[in-house]
Amino acid sequence: MILLTAILVGVLFAQSTYLILQRSFVRILFGIILLANAANLAVLAMSGDPSGKGVPIADGRTELSADPLPQALILTAIVIGFGVAAYFIALLYRTFLDWKTTDAGELFAKSTTDDSNSES
């Protein structure tokens, strides 16, 4: 199971790397979201086999529950990733309204001759 998760993490990482290296910021956004998910899965996989590791706090009855710590970490990371993704989408949308493009090359090019960018 852990091997399968590890392979999945590898695939997700490869995909997100591919997406982040694209020129369009929309794809970079997707790549970043995928990267966050890959990182969450990696935390789950790296924390090892859940069986046998009990709750670190409660006395007794630990065999009934899995190790909660990685899950707490992942939940926090998901929430943070949600906030960052929302911020990034809003930033992307505003930039798109300003510049009418999300292409990194056009956005940062010094020699574009599109005059409509600073209107609106």
């Binding site: 949308y93 505003r94 309204l97």
Partner: peptide, 9 residues
């Protein structure tokens, strides 16, 4: 901002 034009701006 999608319904009204350029609201964010």
């Amino acid at each position: 901002s999608t319904s009204q034009e350029h609201r964010l701006v």
